[in-house]
Nucleic acid binder design. Sequence first.
DNA 1: ACAGTTGTTTACTCGTCAGTATACCTCTTA
DNA 2: TAAGAGGTATACTGACGAGTAAACAACTGT
Lengths: 212, 212
Amino acid sequence: MARSSAAVASPWSTPEERAREREQKREAVLGTAVRFFNTKGFHATSLDDVALALNVTKPTIYHYFASKDEVLFECVRRGLESIRESATTAAAHGGTGRERLRTMLLDYAIVMTKDFGICVSRTQDTQLSPDSRTRFRALKREIDIIIRHVIEEGIADGSIKAGDPRLATFTVTGALNWIAHWYDPEGRMSAQDVAEGTVAMLLTGLSPGGKD
Amino acid sequence: MARSSAAVASPWSTPEERAREREQKREAVLGTAVRFFNTKGFHATSLDDVALALNVTKPTIYHYFASKDEVLFECVRRGLESIRESATTAAAHGGTGRERLRTMLLDYAIVMTKDFGICVSRTQDTQLSPDSRTRFRALKREIDIIIRHVIEEGIADGSIKAGDPRLATFTVTGALNWIAHWYDPEGRMSAQDVAEGTVAMLLTGLSPGGKD
DNA sequence: ACAGTTGTTTACTCGTCAGTATACCTCTTA
DNA sequence: TAAGAGGTATACTGACGAGTAAACAACTGT
């Protein structure tokens, strides 16, 4: 037997393990912070609150993040990345524009029922530092463009009917973002129900005669 | 000639005039404050900012309002009142549910392009005091109920097709509220264009075959 | 003229909170 | 075993901003 496999579980950690632990602690800070931000609001949440909930003190948080702004930005970045990834994936799928749009919007809606998604929807760019704000806007814009593209493709292939694609994008993202403001995980509807219901309504509208 | 009509313009003001002036000053505070709230955010706006913009000092504002919270609440109350009034009026109109809903949503959308409407959409209830928050929620709820009712009536008379009326209400109000987050008065679209486009999209959806 | 009311200012208090200086402790590595 | 790096705590600074005390000024009504 090789020496490495003969060793019993070592009480000493490898550099990789240490890096992973550090990463886990960073995650824990974000996970705790995002819940505070979502329930109390960003400004009403102090890093002392977050630290206390994690049984540490504020300087510990500053060991993992440079500023409160960085904590918030990291939260919204995670939410936006989720959306962007699923949107990019859906955009690359086959099918009509409408089919791809539906996939995209369903994923978007689901993200809006989770902590980081909720944080994205509730965060106003005035809460971020000028730098983070620029990056925040850029990420949102990327997502908007992906959605708008697929809408335009749907119009081109005849599977979508919309006057102004830009306005259509704002309308659907608005309805979807709003989920973060009212969705209650304890309520009667599951995230899946909400997502499917909202997306169906956006695609078919409220008038009779719409089909999908 | 009666004595009152013989008098030249008096340099002394009547109690009514004084009350009106006081009311005008209150309005001026609200008008200035709401613009600051909308551009810089509520927390980032100090009453010193507002006072400075009005060429007065902070205690003057406290002469007209009891607290910063009251200023904010008054702003959102005005926005919500506009919506509620037009919704109530539209609900009392004749026509099918869908026709009344369209009127309602058009007015709602227009409010969302104005200062107090924008403030409503951007204000999170965590920013308000517990008391104001309760009243804020109650007002929003009233509006939701009016809209939900008209949707239910539309379903009953066959002019509207929707799975869950509650979900439908959230979807349309979400899309409409979102206008406050992206609408730019300097942009190419007028408030009227935005309102009509958004409402049309909500009623007919994005799939081909919808009609309205 | 004088007492009261309204509106405004100057100058202050007080609490909160982001962010930091510094020390200490523990584990790693040479 | 000593030097260093990583992680945490105590104790602090400094700014900001809501709200107030107290005085002053103007006007009103008696």
